[in-house]
Design a protein around this nucleic acid. Structure first.
Lengths: 220, 220, 220, 220
DNA sequence: AATGAATGAGTTTTCATTCAT
DNA sequence: AATGAATGAAAACTCATTCAT
């Protein structure tokens, strides 16, 4: 069973996510967010911390300050919560990639920007993407298929950029384009394993370096 | 609680792994392997399939053809099994890196070989490394610290190679060496997400491509 | 807790049941029946299908096309719904028995007609009577006592017929009258277990056979 | 999943059931019966009392003086417990019917004995048969199919007796044999609704009366 | 060296009911 | 007359681990 009363999909923009306009929120709630928002936020934090299986529904509802009944009023299952987390970040990244890839700039600039941007948004949503890598296989079969399909669409858009540059002669054809894409996304997915906000490098600096590495690897 | 009768640590060498010399095996067992070996093999397969938390010790012992008592005779806990899986692949890769990095070849050759070799051994032990990425955080604090320390040691050895090349002027210094290492290992850890033995490319071909990408990215 | 706005008790008559006179219906509703009627019909179908405990009030309100609030507006509890189902069929059968038993025909004709008629009305309301047998014990104590009292009244009216025939010498006295009644009603309650509308025999044919069996068993 | 460590099937005889010889019982247990026996007895009593759905496994294990883990060690599910209850009484009644129907007595004697015997064994196992009628539909589809098949086999054996008598001319053919069987078993299933051990009639007396009713109903 | 019965705390999920609107 | 968010208690079932043998 799917989520029953899904909150309207987040108009994911640059800054902090706002799921609902405050004045229409049915019940403003202790700390300003709606119940499904609080649940989603709590779940995201906890899933990233301890992993999906190690997080109990009890812990989620306690962190969100509601009861289990409330959770199951909005989400059909624990699984749904995970799917929602994925959905949010996948939609965000797909939109940004579509915007960047479709610009009129030369292909090497478009790829460089896309490669850097995915690093920045990954770091800005590090919890979500960490969950993504570690817990994707916990989704039930249909949801998993759906997520994989969206993920594939994203990869293919990216690969199309690489191939465009290869045909244009600005990128080497020594390495197949799909391998290049997997190479880059490998390091993106790996960010959660080592990147720390309080570390030496800002998100933009890391993004710049990783994009540089990719672009140099693609020089003919 | 630690394992009580840990099996002798694997003498991981270059060729096919030999966990145990046949004549010391405590009980030849129905299908040729010792009981702890069968348990470890079953656990590895199942952990990679369904994840650590989704695998019950009941399933492990059934797959190994023994009973729970036998498992707890050889391993102190389910946790110990996971730790053992890690230990095997970590020791293997550390040894191989040490051997390659210590050779007399020029640094760019040594790095290239190391970068390719870790891809090959990762693919050859894809179950173990998949488990590694997904389930490392399930280890208890001390074991986790130990694994992380071994992991760090490995990374640092690799980084030292990059830095050596940078000092020698054969690699660019545009990107900090540790970022380079994380970039490469990101894609190594990501292999489990897409590499299929029955796919288009052999392990060696993939390794060659990924090493090429790295070497090109490091050109000054 | 009792129903708050119980719908007017069904004026169960001879022909097709009319629960409500159309002009007083509070709200004609999407498909012609009043809300409490639709709820009762949905509950009857579902209770007969899956049993009382396996039917959630959520399912009932969905089947009736209303919301939970509406159900609790008309019925004090889920229990009340069950009680209402019983009430309807009990009132119906009692009225018909009273009419038949009070006629001026010879006693053996009256008993035969009553025995056949209860079979026909049971088959015509098979859902309700199935629920009756399977779920009666789910009622709370007071409602259960009430239902049992009505049931007993029905049985006693039937038994009186048997005894009248025994006194008149047209029925054997070899078997106590109450046992005879239980024998017959056993098979009536059992109808739900095997009778199928699409089967070989019509309700009237089954009724005729079962009444014949009873009358033959009572021959002196 | 089926019962995992089913106790040896009861050698159901006349008197109190003994599932296991006491001296081989792995752990004699507080009150002399093995754990699975105590669980089955507790479940039977409770299911008959409150119905299957209204009985929680918590109540069963408390009544049996064990923990939930123990229950699930022996039975795969709550469903299995119900199935086991059915199995016991079905096997018992089938065996007795086979024995009686196969004797060399005239058919009217054999049917009379069988009709009376099923009443006696039903009363002697009134809890089990009450559960049977009320809770059969709670079984999962495969188990339900199995129970129905066994039930059908029983009915058909009984029907064959009626048909034999009809062919021999000792029973009337006015009523189809399968209706006769349903008529009789209706009252047998109904016994739980009114028979009380402390009442006026003994099991044998009731059995005699009900068998008489059947035989009289079958006189040509 | 190995068994398997038993534990007990834990899991996710369901549901009748209430209540402010 | 009717909504639907929220509650809180209870449900069935799982599982790593222990221990007498």
């Amino acid at each position: 069973m799917a989520a029953r009363h899904e909150p309207p999909p987040a108009q994911a923009g640059r800054g902090p996510v706002r799921v609902d306009s405050p004045q229409t929120s049915p019940k403003p709630a202790p700390d300003g967010d709606s119940v499904p928002q609080r649940l989603l936020a709590a779940a995201t934090r906890l899933f990233a911390d301890r992993g999906y299986d190690r997080t109990s529904v009890q812990e989620i509802v306690e962190a969100a300050g509601v009861t289990k009944g409330a959770l199951y009023h909005y989400f059909g299952s624990k699984d749904d919560l995970l799917h929602e987390v994925y959905g949010r970040v996948l939609r965000l990244q797909q939109e940004r990639l579509d915007a960047l890839a479709g610009s009129r700039a030369p292909v090497e600039e478009r790829l460089r920007e896309a490669a850097a941007d995915v690093v920045v948004t990954t770091i800005e949503n590090l919890d979500d993407t960490t969950i993504f890598c570690r817990s994707m296989h916990h989704l039930g079969p249909e949801k998993l298929a759906q997520v994989r399909a969206e993920r594939r669409r994203y990869h293919e858009r990216f690969r199309a950029l690489v191939e465009e540059g290869q045909r244009a002669g600005v990128f080497t054809t020594a390495t197949p384009a799909d391998l290049v894409v997997d190479y880059h996304f490998g390091s993106v997915h790996h960010l959660g394993a080592w990147y720390r906000a309080e570390g030496r490098l800002s998100a933009q600096e890391v993004a710049g370096h990783l994009a540089d590495l990719l672009m140099r690897a693609l020089r003919p």
